[in-house]
Each structure stands twice: as structure tokens, then as C-alpha cells.
């Protein structure tokens, strides 16, 4: 009996703390975007929705956010899997098991500043290249920050995500007793390549899917990093939203809310797709 009450209590608390604020928030944003709430609201209108949906820059913004998240997470996963699979024990025991945690303590705003000072045309790498005689003037240093491909943004996210995934996969490796599986696979005649790509990587990725997806969403919604090291021509979604929310024209605020609702729908669709895929995989297994 007590057990059942505890279960109800736990789940109610869960709904209260995770779903309720967001449902309230999205409703508020939706009302705002339709001109139904806000100090300057003038009644129901679809103008703001028409404005953003008909704006090519808005779609580019969504596309660019997806691209940055996909590339950053892709590279970080590749690096961290390579690190962990090369030496699975290194990150759970010994010196590295402490040091690998250090990068987690660097927040996004500091990472943005660091990348700007490191990779900019007048940054530290450019200075070192100059001293080494690789370049003779700072103009020759490549455009790695504020560029249209988002190189600076991606590098920053990769630096932040790689240690995180390395810790994550190293622990998962142990927890899932992957070493034993791989040993088994070897005795069954699997070669090195097969062991990595047929056994280790799929197991780690499938078990870690929830966390990987969560991180993907963090990157897509990131603000400080694209703000400082991104380009103004192709913006990420948070940067554009804030610009609408806080820059000069109070009449633009409902548009900021419309962008957020649209973004929420996009992420919800991605999430739905992921859960569907996950269930299909589970069904197969």
C-alpha cells in the first residue's frame, strides 16, 4: 500500500516539476505569439506567424541549428568512442579519471571567450603560427570564428562534449560488461573491425541514446557560443529568438514567441521520431 502511494507521489512530483512548467510556458508563448496576451497585445492575429513562416532566414536558422548540432555531436561521438575503445580502463581508473572531469567545469560563456581568443585571426594560434613563420600577417590566418560554416561554434561544442561522452561511454563500457562481450565475439572469430563496429559501437550508442539526444538538444538550443563565435549571416535559433525578444522593437516580441513555439514543435517531432525508432529497435531485440 505504502509502496503504491510512493509510486503515485513520485510520478506526480515528476509531472509537477518537468511537464507542468513547460506546458504552462508553451501555452503562454503560444498565446503571446497570437496576440492574446502581453502588455501590448491587440487581440487575435496570425500576422506574427505569417511573418516568421514566410521568412527564409527563419528556415535557414532552423536548418543551421540542426547542422551545427549534428556535426558537433557526430564529431564528439567519434572522438569519445575512439578514445574509450582504444583504452577502456583509462578513464575510470588512475590519473585521467580525475582530469577528464575538469573540462566539464567550463561553462559555455567561458568556452566561447576561450575559442574566440584561441582561434580568432588575432588569437593565440595565429600568434604561434606567426612566430613559427607559417604566416606573415594575421590576415593570412584562416577564418575559424564568425565564419559562415560555424567552425568556431562546432569546435567549441566538440571540446565541451567530448570529455562528457568519454566519461559516459567509459562507464557504460564497464556497466554493460562490454569487455566480456568483445572477448566472446573474438572467440567466435570476429576480427578487430567487426568487434568495434558490429558490437561495441552499436551497444554503446543504443544504451546511450537518451543522453546523446539530450546533449543534441543542448547544442541546438545553445546561445552564448553562437552569439560570440558565430556569424551574423547564418544564426542559430536562440540567437535569433533573443534578437527578436530584446532588440529595439517591442512589436517583435510576439515573433520571438512564435519562433520558440515553432522550435519546440521541431524538437518534439525529432523526439517523437527517436522514441518511435527506439521502440522499433526494442521490439526487434
Amino acid at each position: 500500500m505504502q509502496q503504491r502511494w510512493a509510486a503515485y507521489g513520485g510520478r506526480s512530483l515528476f509531472v509537477l516539476l518537468s511537464a507542468v512548467p513547460i506546458v504552462a510556458g508553451v501555452s503562454y508563448a503560444l498565446l503571446y505569439s497570437l496576440g492574446l496576451t502581453g502588455v501590448m497585445a491587440e487581440g487575435f492575429t496570425l500576422v506574427h506567424w505569417q511573418e516568421i513562416l514566410g521568412d527564409a532566414a527563419f528556415w535557414r536558422t532552423l536548418g543551421f541549428s540542426l547542422y551545427v548540432a549534428a556535426v558537433s555531436i557526430g564529431v564528439a561521438l567519434g572522438l569519445s568512442l575512439a578514445l574509450v575503445l582504444r583504452s577502456p580502463q583509462a578513464y575510470t581508473k588512475g590519473m585521467l579519471s580525475f582530469f577528464i572531469y575538469l573540462p566539464l567545469s567550463i561553462p559555455a560563456i567561458v568556452m566561447a571567450f576561450f575559442i574566440f581568443q584561441l582561434l580568432g585571426k588575432g588569437g593565440w594560434l595565429s600568434r604561434v603560427s606567426h612566430q613559427l613563420g607559417l604566416i606573415s600577417a594575421l590576415e593570412q590566418f584562416p577564418d575559424w570564428v564568425n565564419d559562415n560554416y560555424g567552425i568556431g561554434i562546432i569546435v567549441a561544442h566538440v571540446i565541451m562534449a567530448t570529455p562528457f561522452f568519454t566519461i559516459f561511454f567509459a562507464n557504460l563500457y564497464q556497466n554493460e560488461r562490454l569487455g566480456e562481450y568483445l572477448h566472446l565475439a573474438a572467440t567466435l572469430g570476429a576480427n578487430g573491425r567487426q568487434r568495434i563496429f558490429r558490437v561495441a559501437v552499436p551497444v554503446l550508442l543504443r544504451r546511450g541514446l537518451a543522453t546523446v539526444f539530450l546533449y543534441f538538444m543542448f547544442v541546438m538550443g545553445s546561445y552564448e557560443i553562437p552569439l560570440l563565435v558565430g556569424s551574423q549571416s547564418v544564426q542559430m535559433v536562440s540567437v535569433r529568438t533573443i534578437q527578436r525578444l530584446q532588440r529595439y522593437n517591442l512589436g517583435d516580441i510576439p515573433e520571438a514567441y512564435a519562433i520558440s513555439v515553432a522550435y519546440t514543435v521541431l524538437v518534439a517531432v525529432l523526439l517523437g521520431g527517436l522514441l518511435w525508432y527506439n521502440r522499433k529497435q526494442m521490439g526487434r531485440a
Binding site: I22, G25, S238, T241, L245, Y263, L271
Partner: peptide
């Protein structure tokens, strides 16, 4: 899936 809710909303707007 409910647990993802807070992260589907742009943090600034949240």
C-alpha cells in the same frame, strides 16, 4: 519522454 520537456523549449524563452 516527459523528462525531455524542459529542453525542447529554447532556454531564453523558458
Amino acid at each position: 519522454s516527459l523528462a525531455y520537456f524542459p529542453y525542447v523549449f529554447a532556454p531564453v524563452i523558458l
